[in-house]
Design a protein around this nucleic acid. Structure first.
Lengths: 242, 242
DNA sequence: ACAAAAGTGTTAATGCTACACCCATGG
DNA sequence: CCATGGGTGTAGCATTAACACTTTTGT
């Protein structure tokens, strides 16, 4: 088709990066969204903070590369992983780099003391108080957060922050953190059970006051997570790993 | 970050393809979605039909590459252009290729007798009656159509099929074709004018019966076309070119 | 007993859908 | 004057939002 530059399409490198999101709670305050960043050890942007990622290995699928760098950074497997966007402006890096960016969710309790292969250069930041970032990564994170806020309205993503069994208050708190506003507990309850995506268990969380019933995900219910089947590897492209 | 394969990320080629959609009408029947495909002139999949596209030039942005191949195929500029997805499964081609795929809309009247630089190997097909396609392109087109159907519900994309001035019946017909079902004219009218995105002109389309008022796009009204600013080149990443 | 979270009920407002109806034009 | 699409009105139904109220526990 193209008749340019010897029809080869090289001279371009492909990187895969991932915006890894989790919920962090400090004491009894409302939880906040946190994400790990990696300090760069070479130019360009040496010493600046950047998204975890790396060059794509020719034998590795895009999603696999995202999962791998995620594991290297945090030592964990995500509960949600989805492609965000391919960034490829000519001037976003000194050399020509296409970054295929994914976003992922981690379960809160998993992330607490997770350690990757290079803990020295990894640090977690509050998503609202980020340091100066390398390349166009600040904008990428903004976009990932927008996508999360958007998707929470018509999918079960929020459960990616929670353990397999959780109370409605847990789920509501996750929604409230993502959306940045309070939700009415009564209406929230009715709305989620109208979707028929939660199965009540016979267990309760006891503690401070009246015990709260625990729920688990109804994995068989199809929701608008994507609509058509995943465009790439159907098994791993965009899934909630239970 | 990655410690694999000499940290270079090459041995991989980047292609850009575009799903180009337009409305076609045969006589007085309801219009249908049509798209151009290109007959491949080399292996792999020689002689099969494929999406227009080509290798990414190192000096060219992703969006610019999509617009270029679109112009080469049809001789036209799109009225809507947006990234769809980056496909990169290892086995989708004999060699390792990452395809960054865009989807575009063309105005109906523009597309009627548009001719690109190689009209011999380009043909238009009904989106519901596609031939056998090369690579994973059938699935990609399915996904593009899903995205269009989805996006029509909360954005002004449908206007990408129409000229700058159009009647509500024109717009409704575009919606009906995209969604594949009839819409109530009365309710459609109220719904679109509730969005405040259309400006009535003083012109009318006369013809068969009672003249219909012409409307144009209210370009100043912000809708949920994307939410945050476009993640890449703000000027061209996802825009309706008026 | 009391505080506080879990969970239920009720009502007003809003939006959506269906469909009856009038208007303006070409034939 | 009639057929047809343009355009308005309106009643019924479903969904949402706000908030009063009851239940169940720990202290």
């Amino acid at each position: 088709m193209s008749t340019r530059s010897a029809d080869r399409g090289d001279g371009i490198r492909v990187a895969v990066s991932t915006v890894i999101l989790t919920l962090r709670r400090e004491g009894t305050a409302a939880p906040r969204i946190a994400l790990p960043l990696v300090r760069r050890t070479r130019d360009p942007h040496e010493d600046a903070w950047a998204l975890p990622g790396g060059w794509l290995d020719p034998t590795e699928g895009l999603t696999a590369a995202a999962a791998r760098t995620l594991a290297e950074t945090t030592g964990l497997a995500p509960s949600w992983l989805e492609q965000l966007y391919a960034f490829g402006a000519v001037d976003r890096s000194p050399s020509r780099v296409i970054s295929v960016v994914y976003w992922a969710l981690l379960r809160e309790e998993d992330a607490v003391d997770a350690v990757g292969s290079d803990p020295e250069n990894v640090a977690w930041f509050d998503a609202e108080q980020l340091p100066a970032l390398a390349f166009d990564h600040a904008r990428i994170i903004e976009y990932a957060l927008w996508r999360l806020r958007n998707k929470v309205g018509y999918s079960r993503v929020a459960q990616g922050f929670l353990p397999p069994e959780f109370t409605l208050a847990d789920l509501r708190e996750a929604y409230e953190t993502i959306l940045g506003r309070r939700l009415d507990p009564a209406n929230f309850r009715r709305q989620v059970d109208a979707t028929r995506t939660l199965i009540p268990t016979n267990a309760f969380r006891t503690g401070s006051h009246r015990p709260a019933r625990l729920y688990r995900d109804a994995t068989d219910v199809e929701l608008a997570d994507r609509g058509p089947l995943s465009p790439e590897e159907t098994s791993t492209e965009e899934t909630r790993i239970p």
